[in-house]
């Protein structure tokens, strides 16, 4: 008898992803679904999707989902989690959402040590609105609102939100990963799982920042986009564990 080696995670619906070819969102959705399955928490998970390309994340993830205004995911998630502490609550946010319009909500959720899991998808642009400069856009990077490239003393420097949140005493685990190769994808899954586990262990605030690719707005092929993440983005945003209070070495 044939052994089944690949199947759709239970936490993933049958909807076909609407994301552009080569977009990181599809991979990340799948990873979240797999983690939810593996932890056996599908029936007690509530997700808070963002505004942006992933606004329809609820079409793909087969768990309870509640929308949040742009930037307010952490506040909405705080409300859900505090009202029903037995639930496992995660937010799914882009760079503009989490690190620009929602900076205050992010900093304070981390600072209060909210038992939440934040999935932070960093692709350096506002994808849905057509590729404007994001807080994480690299120095010199051309976007629709930085036609000559991002000039730090005019447009600000790329913001490192993960480092900022690591400073907050309430955060327990923050790691930056990518989804550019199978190796990185596996690492990302491990990180997501750990971030969920931290919440379930009632430890504090956990976040995984995932460097993702937006081939469409970067005007690159999927392969080129992955290469760009590895060659350029990782220089400004190096991968690795930024904070882990469960590791004594930290």
């Amino acid at each position: 008898m044939a052994k089944q080696i690949f199947k759709r995670p239970e936490a993933l619906t049958e909807h076909i992803f609407h994301y552009c070819p080569g977009c990181g969102h599809s991979i990340i959705h799948r990873l979240i679904a797999e983690v939810i399955d593996e932890l056996g928490i599908r029936e007690k998970t509530v997700g808070v999707p963002p505004a942006g390309c992933a606004v329809l994340a609820y079409n793909y993830l087969d768990v309870d989902m509640g929308e949040a205004p742009h930037g307010r995911a952490m506040a909405v998630a705080t409300g859900i989690k505090r009202a029903r502490p037995h639930l496992v609550v995660f937010t799914y946010q882009g760079d503009g959402d989490i690190a620009a319009i929602g900076t205050a909500e992010s900093v304070h959720a981390a600072n209060r040590g909210e038992r939440l899991t934040a999935i932070f998808v960093n692709n350096g642009v506002y994808g849905m609105t057509g590729g404007q400069m994001a807080p994480t856009t690299l120095v010199g990077q051309t976007t629709t609102t930085t036609p000559g490239g991002r000039l730090p003393l005019r447009d600000g420097f790329p913001l490192d939100l993960s480092q900022m949140l690591a400073v907050a005493a309430g955060s327990v685990y923050i790691e930056r990963t990518s989804v550019t190769s199978p190796k990185h994808v596996l690492k990302t899954k491990k990180a997501i799982k750990k971030a969920f586990q931290m919440q379930m262990d009632d430890l504090g605030f956990a976040l995984v920042e995932i460097l993702s690719q937006c081939p469409t707005n970067w005007k690159l092929s999927p392969i080129e986009a992955c290469r760009r993440v590895e060659d350029e983005v990782m220089k400004s945003y190096p991968l690795g564990v930024i904070k882990d209070t469960t590791q004594t070495s930290n």
Binding site: A68, P69, M74, A75, I80, R82, A83, L87, A104
Partner: peptide, 26 residues
């Protein structure tokens, strides 16, 4: 029962939104 002193008015109303989603009078 949960009391949260929020970081802003925005956060406060959105927390209420979340709690209400979860079915609690907020």
């Amino acid at each position: 029962a949960t009391f949260v002193q929020a970081e802003s008015e925005l956060a406060a109303i959105n927390m209420v939104m979340g709690a209400s989603m979860a079915g609690v009078r907020a």
